[in-house]
Amino acid sequence: MFDTVITSEQLFQALRETVVMVGVSLFFGALLGIPIGIVLVITRPGGILENRFIYAVLNPLINIIRSLPFIILLVAIIPFTRLLVHTSIGTSAAIVPLIVYVAPYIARLVENSLLEVSPGILEAAEAMGATTFQVIWHFLLPEAFGSLILTMTTATIGLVGATAMAGTVGGGGIGDLAISYGYQRFDTFVMIVTVVILIIFVQGIQSAGNRLARKARRD
């Protein structure tokens, strides 16, 4: 029906690359972003471990990274990427900027989720003589759990979008396929297929996230 130059193998390869890029950068992004988000909440003025210095450093730092569009971040930190993975092209080279991009995003979203926890809960925790770690572990995180799932859902979808640009450094993935075949070689079939795949991808992530969050919130 359509004339296309790509094989189904290429398509699956691209799919795999997207899943790897999203999965790996989400994992490391969360590993960095969640603790940073927690630190932001507890060190903020009026927080349970108020620390003006840490907050004053972390807060603008996150804003600075978040001000850069991913495509610029991607090329701007190439020296850093090379330092870390000894290459500046390919999937692993794309993962480094993806992590740098998503970690502050997750940190900010986690901060917002945790701020939603009622101050009354924290007061109760303090009245019980909970340590800072206990407040985070037994009060803050369980109470924000449903909201945190939605946070991670949003971050994942953001990452899917960002991976499309990773093609610029030869990262591969669905987005790359769409640009290099669908756009640059006028392959309409590839364009349609990649768009449909991306839509299914994002829809799937969102509804899975919603379902999990609903379960956690017992609505």
């Binding site: 009245a127 019980m128 340590t131």
Partner: peptide, 21 residues
Amino acid sequence: LRQVKKKIGMIFQHFNLLESK
């Protein structure tokens, strides 16, 4: 002080229970 607080219970106007538990 945390040990002292464990010997002082407190209840609140808006209960402050954990909704997730």
